[in-house]
Amino acid sequence: MFKDTFDKLCWASLAIVLIALLVLLGMNAGSEGKAASGLDKAVEREMAYHARVELIAKLYGPVDGLRKEGKNQEALLKLDELVRKYPGEAHGHILQGEILREMGALDEAVASYVAGVKLNGDYLDDKSPLSRRGDIQRLVDEGLKRIGARAAANPGNRTIAASLQKVNYLRSRLAGGCE
């Protein structure tokens, strides 16, 4: 591979290009190149994410306000409007799950949480500002106990079995693993 002029030319080209590349990278190390080229995707994504969290807080603020006043049914009616307006947004389903649970509709609460978590797994993450991991864990514990007992008392009941399956889905998501 180092026999004739052509080989030598190729080796020389290779060396020159590699040196040029190292010089180029060395000169720009630590510069603002990343931001200037608009390629720092991680930062852009974090900013978009935080903007989204802010928007969610603003959109669903009236619902949270009603809940704080103890007006769960009014909050539910308000939420209905928002869920219809933003059907792909998981937050409405999660809030609905929280309200339904407080109102004693456990099966429907579980179904709402499942719909929300399927749309956005961030609600299970400890690190997310949207995290509801603790609430979901408590819901699963309650679901396993109450829905599990109903399933045991009514073997073959498909509605209760379907509810228990939803609890197990949340349980599986809480357990982690690859998605």
Binding site: K71, N72, Q73, E74, L76, L77, K78, D80, E81, R84, M103, G104, A105, E108
Partner: peptide
Amino acid sequence: DLETMAREGKIAPDDFVVLAQSKP
């Protein structure tokens, strides 16, 4: 009925105060 009427736009959720509500 409250849910249905609100969905159909016949009433607004803000029109009323729920004084008490039963378990489902």
